[in-house]
Nucleic acid binder design. Structure first.
Length: 475
DNA sequence: TTTTGAGTTGTTCGA
DNA sequence: GTCGAACAACTCAAA
């Protein structure tokens, strides 16, 4: 019996049928064998986090459904999985869209070489970036280190992004007989089932991504520039988990936004997509970004090791309401509003003086939109160790940030209900409230709600001093 | 070639 | 109460 002729479409971070160049290329050969491989063997220390796995579980259900059940699942070393499939089928070609994490680039390059040496057609495509990192360079040929020239000169004025491709009208697909069942991938937690309820406000998958985009274009984009800073408003797109899994392409988002928006709101939103590009660009050109300080002088920074403080930060028990609200939103929903991400990160790094990697690792495990490029670049940006980084003296005051961006306390009261009866005047800094006010709101500081674990004024001064020491150690 | 000015997201202090 | 200055050092590109 002759082997069945198929082309493999290897889905990775492109879990969609629309605007999928690898899928379209494979379909030109006829029948396809769509596969997903959970490859924890090649992944380095940044193997997929727990919350992202939950999202992926639901994404794979959606993708499988859109392929009429014809999605084959595997767990293990991708190299071995592919070589087994090559044994079992008459392979017309293997097609995938590129990934950019260092370990995936390394793995994919190796696999590509092996396949080509075996005379198997293998093609890769760009499906998750508006501009390929290696195409954007300064005049002298070296990579940009500052966002504005990167985006406005290197990207925006250089070449328009590829326009989205349509969803294929017909897909002739088969499923491998040795495919695992979804539950075999054990992407969901066992006990406790902390994922239950987490997905209530999300609909993973391509259809959910489209819904999310439409909702944003209809309700969020107008007023985005200012509204995006207010965590109780819904001006942010909330597309990050969909972009991370590739359930929607940045190209689709880019062009749909251009069709539906205008002025400063549109410009600002597109530049946020530009920041995502910049993160990937940095990770590509500086692959140690997740581990090492982009600016080596930070290697001498006097970080503090304080597991109790780190633990309080993770649990949302720091006694600083806006910080606790953000950390609890993260824990409960797997998501945190961008403005609040900056506030909690600044607090960890600049008030507690805890290494940015501790924060990056926690976000990696708990965010449903965990993305190595965005996570690494953004944490280093807040720390000041990154490219185009925040000036060292830009230390957020979590009280004034909350007053400015959550003025009515809606967000804080939602996630820190034990202090919700405090009047606005004291909501942002309960430790300053008179005893009678605290009693009236049924709060016992240090009991029903923690006393602040850091003195904001003193810790700010300590941080400035620590940064000062960098300058001296340099000399 | 050298100079110059600007650079995602801030805060504090003193006039 | 408002406002400007100060808080590094470095990157980038236009002048």
């Amino acid at each position: 019996m002759s082997k069945e002729k198929v082309s493999i479409v290897w889905f990775r971070q492109d879990l969609r049928l629309s605007d999928n160049p690898a899928l379209i290329a494979a379909l030109q050969n006829g029948t396809i064998l769509p596969i997903y491989i959970l490859d924890d063997e090649n992944a380095d220390e940044w193997k997929m986090g727990a919350a992202t796995r939950v999202w992926l579980h639901h994404s794979l259900i959606a993708l499988r459904k859109s392929l009429n059940g014809n999605l084959s699942l595997f767990h293990g070393n991708a190299e071995n999985v592919l070589s087994n499939l090559i044994e079992a089928y008459d392979i017309q070609g293997i097609y995938w869209n590129r990934c950019y994490e260092p370990w995936r680039i390394k793995r994919d390059s190796k696999i590509k070489t092996i396949l080509q040496d075996a005379n198997i057609t293998v093609e890769s495509f760009n499906a998750s970036l508006l501009w390929e990192p290696w195409t954007v360079k300064k005049a002298d040929g070296t990579p940009y280190r500052v966002f504005s020239p990167f985006y406005y000169k290197g990207c925006e004025t250089a070449a328009p992004p590829r326009e989205p491709m349509p969803k294929p009208e017909q897909i002739d697909a088969v499923r491998a007989t040795d495919s695992l069942n979804l539950n075999d991938l054990t992407l969901l937690p066992s006990t406790p089932r902390w994922d239950e309820g987490m997905m209530d406000n999300w609909r993973p998958g391509e259809v959910g991504a489209e819904e999310c985009l439409s909702k944003f274009l209809d309700n969020g984009l107008a007023g985005y520039k200012n509204g995006r800073n207010i965590p109780s408003k819904r001006n942010v797109s909330r597309l990050s988990p969909y972009l991370q899994t590739g359930e929607i392409s940045p190209n689709t988002v880019w062009y749909r936004a251009k069709e539906n928006g205008e002025g400063p709101d549109l410009k600002h939103f597109c530049s946020e997509l530009g920041w995502r590009e910049f993160s990937y660009y940095l990770l590509y050109h500086f692959p140690t970004l997740p581990e090492k300080n982009h600016q080596p002088k930070f290697d001498n920074f006097p970080w503090v090791k304080d597991d109790n403080a780190l633990d309080a930060w993770q649990r949302g028990e720091t006694g600083i309401p806006i910080v606790d609200a953000g950390m609890r939103e993260l824990w409960q929903t797997g998501y945190m509003h961008n403005r609040v991400r900056m506030i909690v990160a600044s607090f960890l790094i600049k008030n507690l003086l805890i290494h940015w990697r501790k924060g990056a690792e926690w976000f990696w495990d708990t965010l449903i939109d965990a993305d190595l490029a965005n996570n690494s670049a953004s944490w280093q940006w807040v720390a000041g160790s990154g490219a185009d980084a925040a000036p060292y003296f830009r230390i957020f005051n979590p009280v004034s940030q909350a007053q400015k961006f959550d003025p009515s306390g809606t967000y804080i009261r939602k996630y820190v209900p034990e202090i919700r009866d405090l009047p606005d005047k004291y909501l942002f800094a309960p430790w300053e409230a008179p005893a009678t006010i605290l009693a009236g709101a049924n709060i016992k500081l240090g009991n029903t709600y923690p006393k602040p674990i850091a003195d904001l004024k003193l810790s700010r001064a300590a941080a400035l001093e620590a940064f000062q020491s960098l300058k001296q150690s340099e000399a």
